[in-house]
């Protein structure tokens, strides 16, 4: 047994393709970014070596970069505080419903996840448009006219609106994973409750939640990652504006490279971005231990 499973040549052949993919697709581009970030490469022009100048600029002068980071962190926490509890609540409700209704609702809830972001973004832009959008119309119809706003152009509401759309987009996905978790433990829950005689909220906090913890961890991990990586929705809905009020790092990086033509600088942003992601991973692993990571 050990002879077969410890065969160096076999292991090498099994692991090699995956490692090569990682080197070619992730490591090499990032190292190249690291090199380019030390230059002043501009659109078309020759690259000049400028040392750490780009990095110094990020850390001392670039307000937008740090605003983008803060936005990502807020998004990550919003996932945890709002999206996840709601997802979990609905997963539990869904489980309770049973029968045909359960299936139908499950399909309905997951639908935004399979529709292109291009489509859902365009829809939300139209829905939130203060001139002809549905949202303000609904608010007016139910007598809450005072709340009607320019959701996406008012600097004070744009970030909240974008947060909402992003969370809406991911709702079905998060719910499905929690739902999966709920299904997986429902036998254990009932058993434990019969012994305990626990019902209602006590049942949830003393039995269901602890059993769901592994799923919570997975969902929080996925949420954290997607918060940092957020790009498409913002790119399509506000492009980070007005000003930098709804800016996220990936979108900022893209703008710096392809609109401001600051290629070297954009690469420096990419490198700092990667480092931040890794630091978050480390901190996060210290706080919430995910067994397999």
């Amino acid at each position: 047994m050990d002879k077969v499973l410890g065969n160096k040549k076999t292991i090498f052949l099994l692991v090699l393709p995956g490692i090569l993919v990682m080197i070619a697709g992730v490591l090499f581009p990032i190292l190249m970014s690291g090199y380019l970030s030390l230059t002043s490469m501009q659109g078309g022009g020759a690259a000049k070596f400028v040392g750490l100048q780009n990095y110094i600029k990020i850390f001392t002068k670039d307000k937008t970069f740090w605003v983008s980071i803060v936005h990502a962190i807020i998004l990550g926490f919003s996932y945890m505080l709002f999206q996840h509890p709601i997802c979990m609540g609905f997963a539990l409700l869904l489980d309770k419903m049973g029968g045909k209704a359960e299936k139908v609702f499950r399909v309905l809830f997951f639908i935004p996840c399979v529709i292109s972001i291009m489509v859902t973004s365009k829809m939300w832009v139209n829905i939130l448009n203060p001139t002809f959008g549905v949202f303000n119309k609904v608010l007016t119809a139910i007598g809450m006219e005072g709340l009607a706003r320019n959701w996406l152009s008012d600097p004070n509401t744009v970030f909240i609106s974008v947060l909402f759309i992003i969370m809406w987009q991911g709702f079905g996905y998060g719910m499905l994973i929690y739902y999966a978790g709920v299904k997986g433990i429902s036998g254990d829950v009932n058993e434990a409750c019969q012994i305990d005689g626990a019902t209602g909220f006590r049942k949830f906090f003393s039995v269901t939640l602890p059993l769901l913890m592994p799923v919570v961890k997975v969902n929080v991990t996925l949420g954290m990652i997607s918060a940092l990586k957020q790009m498409e929705t913002v790119f399509l809905i506000t492009d980070g504006g007005p000003g930098d009020r709804s800016q996220f790092i990936a979108n900022y990086l893209y703008q710096q490279a392809f609109r401001a033509f600051k290629y070297g600088y954009a690469n420096a942003i990419a490198v700092v971005f990667v480092v931040i992601c890794l630091v978050v991973t480390v901190i996060y692993n210290k706080v919430i231990v995910v067994e397999d990571l």
Partner: peptide, 24 residues
């Protein structure tokens, strides 16, 4: 060690490779 190397890829945003990949 190699597993960690691969899993770290999960945390790296795909968009950071956009620019260098273009040249590559």
């Amino acid at each position: 060690a190699w597993l960690t190397f691969i899993l770290i890829g999960m945390m790296i945003p795909i968009h950071t490779t956009l620019l260098p990949n273009f040249l590559i």
